[in-house]
Design a protein around this nucleic acid. Structure first.
Lengths: 226, 226
DNA sequence: CGGCCACTTGAAAACCTTCAACCTATGTGG
DNA sequence: CCACATAGGTTGAAGGTTTTCAAGTGGCCG
């Protein structure tokens, strides 16, 4: 339903708001966000397990405001693989504007909220900039851009790198704070290319080596080194 | 030395030209490129082994015009890993605009030419669009965006997937044409997280299974299925 | 020629997966 | 409130794959 797209029906649109007025805009866009730069529409909250995007569906772009989304692709053989995570401030669905349709399914791994970004006719005419510019920055900063940094590492190191990476992307108050991984061991394994059991054992090793403390899905980085 | 360019539009001091006037602009930007949309400066050709970018150096953005660049990161332990390839039409260095400095070293794997793209003050002021819009599309389409699609596959399948992916990104006249992989087995292994010997053996298996024909670095996709 | 580098091959060791069983929480219905 | 079902998690042992180590080949260039 993009009948009235050119007209800026800002008042008539439901919750189309200026990101500058959003209390959590720093999480999304960084320091200061000038007014009238980015507009977004807050979507209804997603409960755990809810799907935001279906692989193959039409192009749409979201920015994660809170929670965590898991990106999955279903492979020719029917298996599903986790190909990425999206944490607050990260984009979901950008690829769809290059490929015409969504490249993955996005599912909430924990209760999440997202805002939909409306791209001004991406693919043709001119634009005012601002938004595009920021998107470009975002896109460039997007995780898993340069191929898996953990490729070739032993399982224990892969898991360690994953958790380290997660904890840096999650906006934690302090590095020592415990946090909760919203993924199952199976999902972590799928993402890292490891069997779930291997993830369990790797966590065990890391725990024993004092490199982190694990209790269920709660993790705390720790240890003398690093 | 490309002073022999027939630029009707000699506006800039350097060899800054309108991509629309470049004979190979389709390779870079797709179908039709309207005039005055993207300007670039063709750089001197890179011979095999020459470095375009050094990890940690200052932000700069290039688009590959011909050849192939290998992206490497040097890791804390001193080891170097291949994290990506860039083929004609693909961007090199975009990430540097998000991180402030180059995230990887880019080295020509075969004789290559690149053009430098001048980003109009990315990070602040407004822009005319066009460029940014296209960059965004590019960026979204960029390979290795969603985490390694080969993670978890057995070595043979990883190598097969890599070659398949390469042959699709290289602009080959026909799918059956033989082509030359510009990488050593060690580089392929580094990229896929495999030992060089494993790459050798995997290629052997694929060859024996008629899935491709390998002779040195020359490869031809083949076989009845796929 | 000699050196170097990429590539290749074989065998043993290390690692990871698989399979199977069991455990622990959580939620549901009786 | 308990019994049960379910999903995620954990553990052990066997088997397969990959890495490592070692040795050898072939091409290219000073």
């Amino acid at each position: 339903m993009n009948t009235s797209e050119r007209t800026r029906n800002r008042s008539s649109a439901q919750s189309e708001t200026d990101c500058a007025a959003c209390p959590s805009n720093r999480r999304c866009w960084g320091e200061a966000l000038p007014a009238e730069t980015v507009h977004a529409r807050r979507e209804p909250p997603l409960e755990r397990g809810a799907r935001l995007l279906e692989q193959g569906s039409s192009a749409a772009l979201y920015i994660v405001s809170s929670g965590c989304l898991v990106l999955r692709v279903s492979q020719p053989d029917g298996a599903q693989r986790v190909v990425g995570l999206r944490l607050p401030g990260e984009l979901v669905g950008l690829e769809s504007y290059a490929h015409g349709k969504q490249m993955y399914t996005a599912q909430a791994a924990s209760p999440s909220t997202v805002c939909r970004l409306h791209l001004p006719a991406l693919g043709e005419g001119a634009t005012r900039g601002g938004l595009l510019e920021r998107l470009l920055l975002k896109s460039a900063a997007q995780p898993d851009r340069a191929s898996a940094p953990w490729a070739g590492l032993p399982a224990v190191e892969r898991v360690a790198a994953f958790i380290e990476n997660y904890s840096q992307r999650a906006h934690l108050p302090a590095r020592e704070d415990p946090f909760k991984l919203p993924l199952t061991r199976a999902d972590i394994g799928s993402y890292l290319g490891l069997a779930p059991e291997t993830v369990v054992r790797a966590l065990g090793h890391l725990s024993q080596a004092q490199r982190l403390a694990v209790r269920g899905r709660t993790v705390r980085l720790g240890g003398p080194t690093r």
